[in-house]
Design a protein around this nucleic acid. Structure first.
Lengths: 270, 270
DNA sequence: CCATCTTTGTGCACGCGTTCACAAAGACAT
DNA sequence: ATGTCTTTGTGAACGCGTGCACAAAGATGG
């Protein structure tokens, strides 16, 4: 997974727990696959396996939506697809704008999953005048100057930020001022938004660092296990030097080995 | 925020809560920015504001790492940068492979944040023979046939999957069999992995759906408020039709308005 | 050397989310 | 119609994460 939310989503929406909401898309995807295979019904056990969750959790999640199952049989696939789609608001059209058409922004614009499920790319926006008019994924890029008119003119309420970190907050402010109330942020920055605006962030760098943490821990345990059984069959492990006990010495001079940058995002709008 | 983990990361790593681990990269980013501005020390209050979290939470997080602060003063920036980097395993080099060089894969390869912080793109892999040899971000793409030799030859333990959903599980299996123990998955699929392998997923489609849910709820509340005060100043809201009470009628025929696809990812390896 | 002031580190309570385990509900066979 | 068998829906317990509030620690000034 990627990240977490900022500024909790106001009140406890309609009594549906946030954790449940986050899993609904997962169920929906699994159900859609079943639907395409014309499977009429599915048990909580089967569906849970397909979605990669616990069956009890799945049943409890569904119980928040209502009693849509039939005991002894399971859930009607088509019916459940409809109910979840409706609950998630996928039965209506959601125009979306993408700001920052660099490598990542262009990849997002080409993303097939965007068009499906009710999301429609209403416009692509970039600060680089040279980009203006150039079509990306069949949609002409528009200049940042038009941001406000695009938002209000199309009734856009969801914005995607794929700009460099430095421009993200400014873009965010303009989006919010123009009426956007939900933002998906790909820039490696913490966005400050007023109450009532939801922000979700996707941060590649953070995900990798979390993986690195666990990876290091595994290597450390492996080394510890190897230490216990002297000449064990070791695989790789360059120089974990994990043996160093808890505290140990600590050089006050650090950050000398990592790049000088400051988490530049995957885009290049200017 | 993007997604969540699959198969919890084994044991409770060294006593550091998972939630804390997920925030360490955030702190590190804020600290790095302070370091570049040559700020010597920072209080929990200031740093918490920069990272967008509660100061008490931040102090508790740091307490898991040890007592690195000075009461009445705050935390030494450089020292903390070093400690967190070390804890996250960022003081060593992590070779990474990216599998699936489509739009998204190419964008990831060009991502600056990769190279910094100890992550190094060791290889780009794609199933399309026509891609073989073509340089992307200065690195020649290699064919899937070489996957195993690349993994073992470079001692890669972290893999990034940016293939279409259909190919993800197969690629995942091969990565794991070759020795990869951490996977960052961009394909919209649930990956099944053996114990000991960490998987984190980044799913654009899920994030958007979660935003849509909250967006719809806001529109519903707005409509409810507007209903209470008859002719209120309504902004947009196309046809939320939120009024429909709880249960209400439920058409058994659904999924007629959304695209026929099944969440195609942003790549095109073949 | 003592007093004051700032800021950390943490004990404690609360709430959310997860999981177990089981009773109730309904399908299906006889 | 009755019994059996499957599967849902949920009550209850547990554990993790969060935030409050404060005591302890140390800097700073007199």
């Amino acid at each position: 997974m990627a990240t977490g939310r900022t500024h909790r989503p106001a009140t406890r929406s309609r009594g549906i727990p946030e954790a449940t909401v986050a899993r609904l898309p997962l169920y929906l995807r699994a159900l859609t696959a079943l639907s395409e295979r014309s499977v009429p019904t599915v048990s909580s056990e089967e569906l849970a396996a397909a979605a990669g969750v616990n069956s009890a959790k799945l049943r409890k999640d569904f119980s928040y939506l209502g009693s849509y199952g039939t005991r002894g049989v399971g859930y009607d696939v088509e019916y459940l697809v409809y109910q979840i789609s409706r609950e998630l608001g996928l039965t209506q059209d959601w125009p979306v704008v993408i700001v920052g058409i660099g490598n990542l922004g262009a990849a997002l614009a080409n993303y097939g999953g965007f068009a499906s499920r009710g999301f429609r790319v209403a416009a692509l926006i970039d600060a680089d005048p040279a980009m203006a008019g150039k079509p990306v994924a069949g949609i002409p890029v528009q200049h940042t100057d038009e941001l406000e008119s695009i938002i209000t003119g199309n009734g856009v309420s969801i914005g995607v930020i794929a700009t460099p970190a430095g421009a993200a907050q400014q873009v965010c402010d303009r989006l919010v001022a123009a009426g956007v109330t939900s933002i998906l942020n790909f820039a490696p920055t913490v966005l400050n938004v007023p109450d009532g605006v939801d922000v979700r962030k996707v941060d590649l760098s953070i995900e990798l660092q979390i993986l690195a943490f666990h990876e290091q821990r595994k290597a450390g345990e492996e080394a510890a296990a190897a230490a216990a059984v002297p000449a064990a069959a070791r695989k790789r492990a360059a120089a974990p030097a994990a043996g160093a006990s808890g505290s140990g010495s600590a050089p006050a001079s650090a950050s000398a080995d990592q790049g000088p940058d400051g988490d530049v995002p995957a885009v290049m709008p200017a």
